[in-house]
Design a protein around this nucleic acid. Structure first.
Length: 420
DNA sequence: TCTGGGGTCCTAGGACCC
DNA sequence: TCTGGGGTCCTAGGACCC
């Protein structure tokens, strides 16, 4: 059996830990630049706020219902996530961290009759130890565990835990389960399935295997099998290395100056390089992209990217930045209002797998290595971006974050005060 | 005025190899 | 008249996830 732990309304729940007065009220957390809603409390869902809706369209509903909105505070959410995962890790045979708010649990070696007690105790431990509500679903495959988790959220009587093991229980559930809510079936396939009269997970598994393969490829077939209890998606141990590393942002206001874009690209290149060194990787490809605002009806559109292939693998920020910037020079055009840009590192291998090149001296390599580790050390000790390259500039890129809570658990300056 | 930021995997088709 | 049969690698784009 596989379990899936899912933190309820995760970002909102994180905000509520340090501000209990938010309990019972409609609360939302916004994306970067306070653009869209990316997390909603159950009260916010009830009054009809949809996932991903832009803030400016919600002005009225927010006023009418006294909705409380927060800017996203990722240092806080990341730290709370790590605490949840730690409890899961020490209390179960093995877990796979699947996202910031979800983890699969390996129950394969645990007798069926013990799973339920473990599940309920995990929910209590996390509530008490970290302060957030979680739901747990358990079944024969990861895809079915996802279904079970959804049920545990849907029905309060489950107290956040749902175990689906009996064949008859599973088919009873699947008969009512909308096919578009199945893990692995997205918008496009839902639409296609609907056109063939398939609307529930049960109708989906009744379809012929060959038909599924032809219409939905090998991944669709996997989902089809998983729903029938056949294990196709295994549990990953450890976090696999990233194959691509991307840093990108939308700007608070449009940029049309080369200089401004240059600073942004240099900053993002530097962040990506830092992430690359963190996973002890080196890359050989850099992709940069610049986009104009897709929502603007007037104005010129220009979406362009450049791929730079380096002659040697590197993790050196200076090399990555200067190449990213020459890429920008090649695609930048005057007269456009740019809204977003980003830097993607690709063609990544582990640094230890690197074959030393004939043309760089040992001296140069070790110089580069020590420079980078000193940079990383300073930034880790004195705070992110304490030391930056001149290209990135000293001013930070402005983002709208007017509704930000404090970094209660990761910054001494923001630590909570107790007033006597 | 105002619309997120990350990722992964699969597939089809073209270029190329012998 | 008739024009092989087996591969690999790369890339762009689509689908999906949170």
């Amino acid at each position: 059996m596989f379990g899936l732990t899912d933190c309820n309304n995760f970002y909102v729940s994180c905000e509520r830990i340090f501000n209990p007065s938010l309990e019972g009220k409609p609360v939302v957390v916004l994306s970067n630049n306070d653009g869209c809603v990316i997390s909603r409390s159950s009260e916010a869902k009830t009054i009809g706020i949809k996932m991903g809706s832009p803030l400016f369209k919600l002005k009225e509903i927010i006023k009418d219902h006294g909705v409380i909105a927060y800017s996203s505070n990722f240092p806080l959410y990341g730290d709370i996530s790590a605490r949840v995962m730690e409890i899961l890790r020490i209390s179960t045979p093995a877990i796979e961290v699947y996202s910031i708010d979800e983890a699969f649990i390996d129950f394969r070696e645990v007798p069926d009759n013990e799973i339920s007690a473990i599940g309920h105790s995990l929910i209590k431990k996390i509530r008490k130890g970290v302060g957030i509500p979680v739901s747990i679903g358990v079944s024969k495959t990861k895809t079915l565990a996802k279904v079970a988790t959804k049920l545990s959220k849907q029905y309060p009587s489950t107290k956040g835990f749902c175990l689906m093991s009996k064949e008859s229980d599973i088919s009873r559930v699947l008969k009512k389960f909308p096919v578009e809510d199945v893990w692995g079936i997205g918008r496009a396939h839902s639409k296609m399935l609907a056109s063939y009269g398939v609307s529930t997970a049960y109708e989906f598994i009744l379809k012929d295997e060959k038909w599924i393969r032809a219409k939905m490829g090998i991944t669709g077939l996997r989902t089809w099998r998983e729903l029938q209890g056949e294990n196709c998606i295994s549990l990953e141990d450890g976090t696999p290395d990233k194959k691509q590393i991307c840093t990108s942002r939308s700007f608070a206001s449009d940029l049309s100056d080369f200089e401004d874009l240059y600073k942004a690209i240099a900053t993002f290149a530097s962040s990506s390089a830092e992430k690359l060194r963190k996973q002890k990787g080196v890359c050989r490809e850099i992709i940069i992209f610049i986009l104009t605002n897709p929502f603007k009806e007037s104005g010129l559109t220009h979406n362009q990217s450049a791929l730079i292939t380096l002659s040697e693998y590197t993790d050196n920020s200076l090399v990555i930045i200067s190449n990213a910037c020459s890429g920008l020079r090649a695609i930048f055009r005057e007269g456009y209002q740019y809204k977003k840009c980003g830097v993607i590192l690709s063609s990544i291998i582990r640094k230890t797998d690197l074959t030393p090149t004939l043309f760089a001296s040992i001296d140069e390599i070790s110089k580069s290595n020590s420079l980078m580790s000193v940079m990383d050390e300073i930034n880790s000790k004195y705070g992110n971006k304490s030391i930056v390259t001149a290209a990135a500039g000293i001013e930070k890129i402005k983002a709208n974050q007017n509704l930000l809570s404090k970094r209660y658990t990761t910054s001494w300056d923001d630590i909570i005060e107790v007033k006597v």
